[in-house]
Amino acid sequence: MNSFVKAVTFVTFAAMSAVPAMAQDTPAPADARVYFVNLADGDTVSSPVTVIFGLEGMGVAPAGTEKDNTGHHHILLNRPPLGEGPEGADELAFGLPADDNHIHFGGGQTQATLDLPAGDHTLQLVLGDLNHIPHADPVVSDVITITVE
């Protein structure tokens, strides 16, 4: 094999292996549901805020764990609901970014404490698969608004 063919083969293989997993790859049971256990839309709370994640119809597994009917939690904070806004299509296809508005709990955590400034904040829970990608039928909570005093 000449060096040109080797180079093209290497570049092609590298590009193929760099393609991220796509949505629609990981199924979720039709009855799966994620929700806030201790917070409701319109609640007034103090900071730090403890958030307890509820999940029915699926199990929790750390990111990177390939096991049917499992996922791990993410909180979308102060941004549009999953699939909406400027990054909506990308997050459904390529996964959730990690930043101040996309909080990952890849260790399999089922609760978190958030230090939030005073004011109104929106929260939505999203279950991600082993690669932080929402399931084929995304498992998401309603968006709630809380007020921090």
Rank of each mutant, 00 (worst) to 15 (best):
M1F: 08
M1D: 12
V5D: 14
V5Y: 08
K6T: 05
A7G: 10
T9W: 07
F10L: 15
V11N: 05
V11A: 15
T12L: 15
A14K: 06
A14L: 15
M16V: 09
S17L: 15
P20E: 07
M22W: 08
Q24H: 10
P27T: 03
A28Q: 01
A28M: 00
A30T: 11
Y35C: 00
F36R: 00
V37M: 02
A40H: 11
D41C: 06
D43T: 04
T44Q: 03
G54D: 03
A61I: 03
A61Y: 01
T65I: 02
L77V: 14
P81I: 05
L82W: 05
E84K: 13
A89T: 14
L92Y: 07
A93Q: 13
I103W: 12
H104V: 09
G106Y: 08
G107Y: 07
Q111R: 12
P117Q: 14
P117L: 11
G119R: 09
H121K: 11
T122G: 09
T122Q: 12
L125E: 09
L127H: 10
L127E: 03
D129Q: 13
I133V: 15
H135A: 09
H135G: 13
A136T: 10
D137N: 14
V139N: 08
V143C: 06
I144P: 15
T145H: 11
T145P: 07
I146C: 11
T147I: 12
V148L: 11
V148D: 02
